[in-house]
Design a protein around this nucleic acid. Structure first.
Length: 905
RNA sequence: GCGCGGUUAGUUCAGUUGGUUAGAACGCUUCCUUGACAUGGAAGAGGUCAGAGGUUCGAGUCCUCUACCGCGCACCA
């Protein structure tokens, strides 16, 4: 009968549908097609996934949410743009290609810079579009004609512009500082890229002998001093020992000399307030080249900086006998040798935070080297000011504090990386000027041919590249054309919302805000929505190494993109804990929608009457169920709209789920069935109209959440409708169905259907409890407490009979029980069925007794409240009224229960 | 160490500015293949809202403390 099968299966249809949308240009802004738009443009830039990325659940959630917002705004008629793109992910991508080379037993140095970069570009062209292909599978309605890459020509130009501008403004400098160094990647990292993890390590106590004293060293403070360190190998670079100036234990030693063991270097005992006398022995070894604090101390005391490490984490020639050893090997050997010399005191177990490379998890070294930095304080001040002016709004609000705390404690940003894949720093050094002892740095937007100072051609570009985030922080405007003055930039900047995960608030969100203000004088987006993190059921992050990943593409293959999206979004009120079964919610719901629509299609072979216009109901005497569902629809649509506008996406999805499933499917469709089968042609027609109308509107509400299924069915609707000329080409462009409030508002219908639902459920409950087979003919009586109730329920006699499978139903106000009857009670009425041949009513007696107790307790509670003089005095009137109503209801219930008990007892 | 979350039904979680007898999903029990859907329908059981104080007429909701879990940040060697 229908061409739709009883289970949706859109595996192939999804791809086809997506292609159609894309090729027709539906994802592009209305203004691209010269179409009018309403309101301000709605613009989102995608958090660009790494070019090495493959879609994981975090992406799936993030992009589902963006797509929901984008599709919703598009349907609202706004000029809508979602800019997609990919990040070149400097270190990550270089690592991938280096690993590939390693399989051929080659290193990047074997190839040389140029050849290596060719290899990376080759890799990018072959594998770099995996993630964008996968985003399409998810249904992401990005404007792919505007797709960008952080290393494309435009973005590269933006990077240069940004660098040079900051340099010109005195906000970029180069200098020797302690930075985080990854010995495996062999590059500097920013503070954010060195992730601190707690490590159970050792705190080693070591004797440093005083000059002129001989072993055995026994008197602390006289012939030796004991230092405590977590990294013993760094002692090879010690250039002092420090104590607190007021520490009476050691005051007499300040200015004395110590003989640094193993290297036999004379080093001074200095006094510095940094030292905490309480910690360890109160004596600190000072290693200015390998510790940020020691570095600062070294500056204060003009100490020598002895770098003992090679870039790959081995001991260099300054380490004497330890030269060539890996740093951890050297640690062991240093300890052994100290022990052999009687200088090792003890090892305490010690929990401390150790920096790890966020790309390869190697322990990073604080390392002294010459790097480029951005002076962040002035940028942060602008961002803080923008916040004060209300220009930065985070959802949920709690992230604001995280953001502000970071800005307030901001430190300079190390932006140079000693890798090859990335934007090479636009700085050149002039050999001639250098030799002449003059300023040798040339920073330029264009590649210079010779030195602007001395005209020498002997210039060389800085070999380092910029931190990947140095291009990402420009993303909201570089993707729109900056630094060129493009139409897109003018039209779509600043963007509307940024949707992202909490992990990159510092890396990306905060920096984008700073860049936006610095380069464009405006915040880059009006609102920031931070959604939850996706975790495995166990609570751990999903990661390949833990083997606990659920591949979103497998879910798409198995169930479809819509179930994946809906499940994720429904679960996303906070962090999302996933297991395979959790996707069944979305799958079942998608199937429910599919079948409900299939039913509607089947009922309406002839859709000539089908209209999506609400005016069709004007002057029409609609039945109560239809009035009810229209009223519910209007109410729910407004709620969903409200939730979406506040980024309560999961709440919107949950509301929609219940409206569709409970109200529309379980009640309205069931109520509509007898009306459609009715002999009353007018009733039949208006029911069909309402059924169709609401169903089509539901498809619109659902579309942002489950685009594929809804579009598929909607096209069926459209094909069948006689006059489809007024329909949009695609559901994607059909107007969002939130109309002027109150058009369908109908409290009476809501109240009436509420009663009907109670009556039907009450009878069904009796049926179930007394095990009356569905086929058994049943007579029921509804005893109404008010005449009005009786009248309302009378109009539903037929519906109740069908839904509760009754042979006979009587609605009365006065009722004399005859024979054995059992019932259920409600505030406005009681329902009864007659029992034949059922003798055991003990269970029912117990149940009623329990109910009576509960109700008595309830009444008592209300009385306690109402009779409290201060309640009457202080509570608002409406609450007081409510309580009184409750009391009446409760008393009515109690009477009903007592009557019931008496009647069967 | 500082900060931020969380602790509600067997499980995973909602619960908006304090105001019906605290909800949902999954799971569980019972019944049902009725012409949209068994990825379904009907009904049911299940919670002293982590603990202790406090504010209030009224607290799951606000305040304080405690316990446990998670996550950030941080230079205690």
């Amino acid at each position: 009968m229908s061409e739709l099968s009883s289970r949706y299966n859109l595996k192939d249809a999804e791809k086809r549908l997506y292609q159609e949308w894309e090729t027709k240009g539906t994802f592009r802004p209305r203004s691209d097609h010269g179409k009018p738009a309403s309101g301000k443009p709605y613009v989102i830039v995608i958090p660009p996934p790494n070019v090495t990325g493959i879609l994981h659940m975090g992406h799936a959630l993030n992009n589902s949410m963006q797509d929901i917002l984008v599709r919703w705004n598009r349907m609202k008629g706004r000029d809508t743009l979602w800019v997609p793109g990919v990040d070149h992910a400097g270190i990550a991508t270089q690592n991938v290609v280096e690993k590939k080379l390693a399989k051929e037993k080659k290193t990047r140095w074997d190839l040389g810079r140029e050849k290596f970069l060719e290899e990376v570009w080759k890799w990018k062209h072959e594998h770099g579009n995996t993630i964008t292909r996968q985003l399409r599978r998810l249904g992401a309605s990005c404007d792919w004609t505007r797709e960008r890459f952080t290393m494309d020509e435009g973005c590269s130009k933006a990077v240069r512009e940004a660098f040079v501008t900051l340099y010109e403004r005195g906000l970029i400098y180069r200098g020797h500082y302690i930075i985080n160094w990854c010995p495996r990647c062999q590059t500097a990292l920013s503070d954010e890229e060195a992730a601190h993890k707690d490590v159970q390590g050792g705190l080693y106590h070591i004797k440093y002998p005083m000059i002129g004293k001989n072993p055995p060293y026994e008197k602390m403070g006289e012939d030796h001093m004991v230092v405590a360190t977590t990294r013993p190998e760094t002692m090879l670079g010690d250039t002092a020992v420090a104590v607190h100036p007021n520490d009476s234990r050691y005051k007499h030693l300040i200015g004395k000399k110590i003989l640094l063991p193993l290297v036999n270097r004379e080093i001074p005992v200095i006094a510095d307030e940094f030292v905490d006398p309480e910690f360890g022995t109160g004596i600190v070894k000072v290693t200015p080249a390998h510790d940020p604090n020691d570095f600062a101390m070294g500056h204060r005391h003009k100490l020598e900086q002895v770098n003992i490490l090679t870039p790959d984490g081995k001991i260099n020639e300054k380490g004497g006998a330890y030269k060539g050893m890996d740093r951890f090997e050297a640690r062991k050997r240093v300890l052994q040798d100290l022990e052999a010399q009687g200088l090792f005191v003890r090892r305490d177990s010690h929990l401390h935070a150790v920096g790890h490379c966020y790309r390869c998890d190697t322990v990073v070294e604080p390392y002294l080297s010459k790097q480029w930095f951005v002076k962040m304080q002035p940028l942060a001040e602008k961002a803080l000011k923008a916040y004060d002016q209300g220009k930065t709004v985070f959802y949920p609000d709690r992230w604001t504090k995280v953001y502000l705390n970071w800005l307030r404690g901001i430190r300079d940003w190390c932006i140079s990386r000693q890798i090859w894949w990335g934007h090479q720093i636009p700085a050149w050094y002039c050999r001639s000027c250098q030799t002449a002892g003059k300023e040798d740095v040339i920073v330029s937007r264009t590649t210079p041919e010779n030195c602007p100072h001395c005209k020498s051609k002997n210039i060389q570009q800085d070999p380092d590249v910029l931190d990947t985030w140095f291009s990402s922080w420009l993303w909201p405007f570089s993707t729109l054309g900056w630094p060129e003055k493009t139409k897109d930039l003018e039209k779509f900047y600043p963007t509307s919302d940024l949707i992202t995960a909490p992990e990159i608030i510092f890396f990306w969100v905060a920096r984008m805000i700073m860049a936006g203000l610095e380069f464009r004088g405006e915040v880059p987006f009006n609102r920031v929505y931070i959604h939850g993190t996706v975790r495995a059921q166990s609570g751990l992050k999903m990661s390949k190494s833990l083997g606990n990943v659920i591949d979103p593409l497998e879910v798409i293959e198995e169930m479809g993109a819509d179930p994946l999206r809906y499940s994720l979004v429904m679960l996303s009120a906070q962090d999302v804990y996933l297991s395979r079964e959790k996707f069944e919610v979305g799958r079942n719901f998608t199937n429910k929608v599919w079948n409900a629509c299939r039913f509607v299609l089947m009922q309406l072979q002839d859709l000539a009457f089908a209209s999506t216009d609400s005016k069709q109901f004007e002057g029409l005497e609609l039945s109560l169920p239809s009035r009810w569902i229209l009223s519910r629809f209007e109410e729910k649509a407004a709620q969903i709209e409200k939730h979406l506008s506040q980024f309560e996406i999961s709440q919107a999805a949950i509301e929609l789920y219940h409206f569709v499933w409970d109200d529309f499917c379980d009640w309205y469709i069931e109520l509509a069935k007898p009306m459609i089968l009715s002999q009353d042609a007018a009733l039949k027609l208006q029911t069909q109209k309402a059924l169709f109308f609401v169903c089509e509107k539901i498809l619109r509400l659902l579309h942002p959440f489950m685009p594929f299924v809804t579009e598929t069915i909607w096209q069926q609707f459209k094909n069948k409708a006689q006059d489809s000329s007024q329909w949009a080409d695609t559901l994607m462009l059909a107007p969002w169905p939130v109309e002027a409030r109150g058009r369908f508002e109908d409290r009476r219908a809501q109240q009436a259907i509420g009663m009907l639902q109670e009556a039907v459920s009450g009878i069904r409950d009796l049926r179930a409890r007394f095990q009356i087979a569905p086929s058994d003919k049943l007579k029921a009586v509804v005893v109404c407490k008010e005449k009005e109730t009786q009248e309302i329920l009378k109009t539903f006699e037929r519906e109740v009979k069908v839904l509760a499978r009754l042979e006979e139903l009587r609605c009365v106000q006065e009722f004399q029980k005859k024979g054995a009857m059992v019932g259920n009670v409600f505030t406005a009425f009681d329902v009864f069925i007659s029992l034949e041949g059922i003798l055991d009513l003990e269970e029912e007696k117990k149940r009623l007794q329990k109910k009576i107790k509960e109700t008595e307790q309830w009444i008592e509670n209300i009385l306690k409240k109402v009779e409290n003089p201060s309640f009457a005095e202080k509570a608002p009137k409406e609450i007081l009224e409510k309580e009184k109503e409750k009391l009446t209801d409760a008393k009515n219930l109690l009477i009903s229960y007592q009557n019931q008990l008496a009647s069967i007892g």
